[in-house]
């Protein structure tokens, strides 16, 4: 049953994409109504701050770590066996 459900979802990537976008919209709308009385810093007052933070942060980390790997850290899997 679970397998059938997952296969059903897997065959409909467009639907999954819209579910993701709908969720993102919900997350942003929810932020309008959040109680900001316990704010720690300026970012807490900007609506959608954490959205941008997560999106840019992850993109930055992917670019940074993959870049670091390509120019410096990457070796063959048998590097230490030689």
């Amino acid at each position: 049953m679970i397998v059938q459900f997952l296969t059903y979802l897997r065959e409909r990537p467009a639907m999954l994409k819209w579910i993701l976008f709908a969720y993102l919209g919900f997350a942003l709308v929810f932020d309008f109504f959040a109680d900001r009385s316990g704010a720690h810093f300026w970012g807490d007052h900007i609506i959608g701050f954490w959205s941008m933070f997560a999106l840019l942060g992850i993109l930055l980390m992917i670019v940074l770590s993959k870049g670091l790997s390509h120019v410096w850290l990457e070796r063959g899997t048998d590097y230490y066996d030689k």
Binding site: Y23, A27, G48, W50, S51, F53, L55, L59, I62
Partner: peptide
Amino acid sequence: AETFQILGFTGLASYLMIKYIKAHDVAN
């Protein structure tokens, strides 16, 4: 609200970069 956004937009970033996050068979 903070958690919903962080999780959601991390998901979006992963979705956009899915071709690039593929693991390569290398040692670092």
